[in-house]
């Protein structure tokens, strides 16, 4: 029987770009241990070797020639080379590219995200923990112990906070259908609205959890969308940064002008106004879910 998980399912066949690097090699092993079908890796100049039994190629082209079943790539290459790695994956025909790398220049991100959209392909990230469909597979760096198979769809802008909330959801016995990190940078491939829609159409997902943070207007845009479409599945949210002082830039992503939006209050109001329940502590979400499901 096929699962109905989004983005990562039984058919997912993975290429690891930057597989011989410290993070690439380490997480290749963890993905394989989790049951993900990692079929090949790429590091220019290291072709012919193997990492944890996975063959390494010099280019995405040669990897795809040998393994035409590859449909998903995960990118660990350093920020300086990430734009090129993603363009290479897209040119070779890969459908979903998960970009783990942190610190990619904004202009490179804009170029790669627009290129993928013009080709009707999917970018997850950059600066994302990736995607996990518990019990099915993970294309990412998240610690698998925090996740268990279940009915809650989780979508988040923050990596580690996703683990925190997911673990609470696992502990109360509900588990997750799929967990998607859209990435913490100002510009991302998939956004909240697109992943939310995937969860609405996903039979395995009974409720949706949104994990946001202050800055930008991604949460407000989702709220607008839900307000227009109506609440089709129970949706709950946690937003980090309630007590962050205004005018300070928390982390690397907060600087770009946000059109007067982006405070905790503006996000809470927008989401509540759209029928989304907003909570102040990560563990309150799992308790509330128990009452709903």
């Amino acid at each position: 029987m096929k699962s109905t998980a989004i983005l990562v399912n039984e058919d997912t066949r993975v290429l690891v770009q930057g597989i011989t690097g410290r993070q690439g090699a380490f997480h290749t092993k963890l993905m394989i241990d989790y049951g993900t079908k990692v079929v090949a890796g790429v590091t220019p100049g290291k072709g012919g070797s193997s990492i944890h039994g996975v063959p390494v190629y010099n280019s995405v082209l040669s990897a795809l020639r040998k393994h035409p079943e590859i449909n998903t790539s995960i990118v660990f290459v350093p920020a300086q080379y990430s734009l090129d790695a993603v363009l290479e994956a897209l040119e070779a025909g890969i459908e979903i590219v998960v970009v783990i790398t942190e610190g990619i220049p904004l202009r490179d991100e804009l170029i790669l995200v627009n290129k993928a959209r013009s080709m009707d392909r999917t970018i997850v990230g950059p600066n994302t923990p990736g995607v996990i469909s518990p019990g099915v597979g993970k294309v990412g760096i998240m610690p698998s112990q925090a996740f268990s198979r279940g009915v809650i769809g989780v979508v988040s802008r923050s990596g580690t906070l996703t683990y925190e909330v997911s673990m609470e959801i696992s502990e109360v016995g509900l588990g997750q259908s799929t967990v998607v990190g859209i990435g913490g940078d100002p510009v991302t491939g998939l956004d909240f609205v697109e992943v939310y829609e995937m969860f609405i159409n996903d039979l395995a997902t009974k409720a949706i959890v949104i994990i946001g943070e202050i800055g930008g207007d991604a949460e407000e845009r989702l709220a607008d969308h839900i307000k227009r479409s109506g609440v089709e599945k129970p949706t709950l949210a946690y937003i980090a940064g309630m007590t962050a002082p205004p005018g300070k830039r928390m982390g690397h992503a907060g600087a770009i002008i946000s059109m007067g939006l982006g405070t905790w209050d503006s996000k809470r109001k927008a989401l509540e106004n759209a029928g989304v329940m907003v909570f102040k502590a990560p563990w309150e979400i799992s308790r509330a879910l128990l009452n709903i499901i």
Partner: peptide
């Protein structure tokens, strides 16, 4: 903490529990 979101969430919780954060320090990923 590791990650801006978790760092801010930890600050929020410290405040909720009646404490005052001295700083935001995010070591990033990896």
């Amino acid at each position: 903490c590791n990650g801006a979101g978790l760092t801010m969430a930890t600050m929020d919780l410290v405040k909720i529990y009646g404490g005052e954060p001295a700083n935001f320090l995010d070591i990033g990923g990896g």
